[in-house]
Nucleic acid binder design. Structure first.
Lengths: 214, 214
DNA sequence: CTCTGTCGTTACCGCAAGTAACATGCTAGT
DNA sequence: ACTAGCATGTTACTTGCGGTAACGACAGAG
């Protein structure tokens, strides 16, 4: 039959696609974010044009690869966010989930955050937009949605929630990035410090009167 | 004399260097972060090898260019941070300064934040560190220092200040990036929303009881 | 046996980073 | 005045990567 044939082909194509993505994963994990298409193809045991037939261009492969990890991370985060617990506990669990993920696979994390994406094919004419850091954006939107659903923010809540979503995600990301590089403290301490920041401890703290030189 | 000669040459070299940097600036402002060395050289009215003699490689030119803008932005931020005013006002002024800067020169801002840096020259062997987003790091450290100097955080204040410095900078960056792309509100509203977040409004807000579907 | 479509290859193009080797002009020593 | 040295600039090249065109084998339909 036509349909069964197509299904078979589709299945085979999907399996190939998954194999290719896993090979790409291995290479990225080994070579970092600047893994070349040649290297990925070689790791998969095939040659470049097949990659291009499956993913269009490097951006497409990146997008597919990123989607896998992004989806996985987001579902973990959703679990932490939606837990039936106090807000502070949920926030700490979410921060810890994120930090544990980037701690476990820093190479993958760097690939997701710093996509390189300097192709010579001109996507010229962009004024400010594009620039493709989809993971941060998706996390920000997701968090915004949760905030807007569960926290009572009065009028204009949607916009406020979105600002906060992106802001909190950025805080988490930058602090995590710095922490990964320097490891100045344990993960638990970092989580506590960030949660304290979100809980207004900066506003509540008093001025320090005597400067170091006075 | 030998010394006077050398001084003349040094001055001439420095002037050339500045001219080259200004040309690079113009190109980056026009072409975005993926400006090619050829284009920069052409804009400066010279050819590639001169650029390489002055800056070593593309990373060197990037570093020099980034240092100029980073220094300029940091001095503006320092002015806002060190103003003799209430903490909330200072925080809002700092946020607004940063956002105004990225709003005025989005291309430069993108160049600073997304350096591309995917050279084929292997800096292999890095585990987690490097990855070169020096602007965010420098802003984080700077802010940490100001916080530690001026806010009374009790014991372990230095570490807490650093976490907060990097976290706040990341919040500002991510929210600014998103805002630049979507422009969902005015700059003043964004500043207010972020300051509210830092002032603990997330913790203070009540739960929303009735979900949208219940 | 041929036609068609998928999976795969080799060989190529264009482009950008980076370099080697050559040309030129200025200052200085003899 | 002639030549040595040194900075400045050039052309022309190599390497490596993203991306593609054109060609080769193997499956099933008529």
């Amino acid at each position: 039959m036509d349909t069964t044939q197509r299904t078979d082909q589709q299945r085979s194509a999907d399996r190939r696609r998954r194999e290719l993505l896993e090979a790409a994963d291995r290479v990225v994990l080994r070579d970092g974010p600047q893994a070349s298409m040649n290297a990925i193809a070689a790791e998969a045991g095939i040659t470049k044009p097949i990659l291009y037939r499956h993913f269009g261009d490097k951006g497409g492969l990146y997008a597919a690869l990123a989607k896998r990890h992004t989806d996985a991370l987001l579902s973990s985060l959703r679990a932490a966010l939606d837990a039936p617990a106090e807000r502070r506990e949920r926030v700490e669990a979410t921060l810890d989930t994120y930090l544990a993920a980037i701690e476990a696979l820093p190479q993958v994390y760097r690939f997701l955050m710093h996509p390189v994406e300097g192709g010579q094919t001109a996507d010229q004419g962009f004024d400010t937009g594009n620039h493709s850091v989809p993971l941060l954006r998706r996390m920000g939107e997701e968090l915004a949605q949760v905030i807007e659903e569960r926290v009572d923010l009065g009028p204009n809540s949607q916009q406020l929630a979105r600002v906060w979503g992106h802001g909190i995600v950025g805080m988490m990301h930058a602090a995590g990035d710095w922490w990964l590089g320097e490891r100045p403290c344990s993960r638990a301490e970092l989580v506590r410090s960030l949660a304290d920041l979100l809980w207004g401890r900066l506003a509540a703290a008093g001025d320090k009167v005597g400067g170091p030189g006075f």
